[in-house]
Amino acid sequence: MSQSERAPCSPASQGRAAPPRAMAWRRRRTAWLRFWREYRRNRAGVVGLAGLMLFVLLALAAPLLVDPAQLSLTGAPGTPYQPPSARFPLGTDNFGRSLLDLVIWGSRVSLTVGFLATLVSVTLGSLVGILAGHFRGWTATVLMRITDWFLVLPTLVLAIALAAVLSRSTLTVIVAIGVTAWPTTARLVRAQTLAVEARPYIERAKALGGGHGHIMLRHVLPNVMPLVLAQTTLLVANSIITESTLAFLGLGDPTTVSWGAILQDAREAGAISAGVWWYLIPPGLAIALVALTFTLCGRALEGVLNPKLRERR
């Protein structure tokens, strides 16, 4: 046996603890691995995640796959209403533009609006929910009555009203969707905040002098984030559908190409009465598929992050 094998470990090396950052990284890595093991058990969630990655990669690669000059009304490469062919797999529109190029380019706007509108909605809903759940009293009463007022109003009608009043732009669509879709998140986050603040360690933190900001940021927010994450994936699908609806009604940005704008152009061109089915199916199918992928991911996340749903499986 070598000398290194016979020599016992020194007390210093035995009592030496790992650095706090290394321990925190190890815990996060273990938590992510455990999360992924639970997530991949849900086959529908894996399929949704694969489809979502495909759509995101397609949107990111759109400038490399499509020449923006061919999307202009004067630089169209084909003739109007060409059916699907080898040159144009999805046919052409009423201006002779390739519908495949339009669908690929439109994914950038639709996904961007979906993500940013959801970010606005989730941020606003989480802020209202945490404040209402933490402060209680008149603060919670005022915030919840405002939330109830937004819940009573139809989301789509309110978004249409905002988009009609404000200037027609992509930012307007994002704001219109974001400020109308937050009440559901606010109610869910408030319920979770009340459950978290009823735990003993919150009372211990208050007894040790923890202020409102410390309680909400260090204790409440990390515990409501799983719920917020699952809600986010579900809201993105709704935001994309709402954006497509606003664009279809002519309330979107007329200078950008999105899936809803393609459908709106098809409606104005009379594609439905003319029987030009290839003008309608590709953008509509893209909207349905991306909404389905986000819904599958959201349901899978909800099953992983909710212990009660995990036990039922």
Score class of each variant (00 low, 15 high):
Phe150Tyr: 06
Pro154Leu: 00
Pro154Phe: 05
Val157Trp: 14
Leu158Phe: 15
Ile160Pro: 03
Leu162Ala: 11
Ala163Pro: 08
Ala163Met: 13
Ser167Gly: 12
Ser169Gln: 05
Val173Glu: 00
Ala176Gly: 07
Ala176Lys: 14
Ile177Arg: 15
Ile177Lys: 15
Gly178Lys: 10
Thr180Ser: 12
Thr180Met: 10
Ala181Met: 13
Trp182Met: 04
Trp182Cys: 03
Thr184Glu: 08
Thr185Glu: 02
Arg187Trp: 15
Leu188Lys: 02
Val189His: 00
Ala195Gly: 03
Pro200Asn: 14
Pro200Leu: 14
Glu203Tyr: 13
Glu203Ala: 07
Glu203Gly: 06
Arg204Lys: 11
Arg204Ala: 12
Arg204Trp: 13
Gly209Thr: 01
Gly210His: 06
Gly210Tyr: 05
Gly210Ala: 12
Gly213Tyr: 04
Gly213Ser: 08
His214Pro: 06
Arg218Asp: 04
Val220Leu: 05
Val220Ile: 09
Leu221Tyr: 10
Pro222Phe: 14
Asn223His: 11
Val224Glu: 07
Pro226Leu: 10
Pro226Ile: 10
Val228Asp: 02
Val228Ile: 07
Val228Thr: 02
Val228Asn: 01
Gln231Pro: 07
Thr232Ala: 12
Thr232Ile: 05
Leu234Ser: 00
Leu235Ile: 05
Ala237Lys: 08
Ser239Cys: 06
Ser239Phe: 08
Ile241Glu: 04
Glu243Phe: 15
Thr255Glu: 02
Thr255Gln: 00
Val257Lys: 13
Gly260Tyr: 01
Ala261Arg: 11
Ala266Gln: 09
Arg267Asn: 05
Gly270Thr: 07
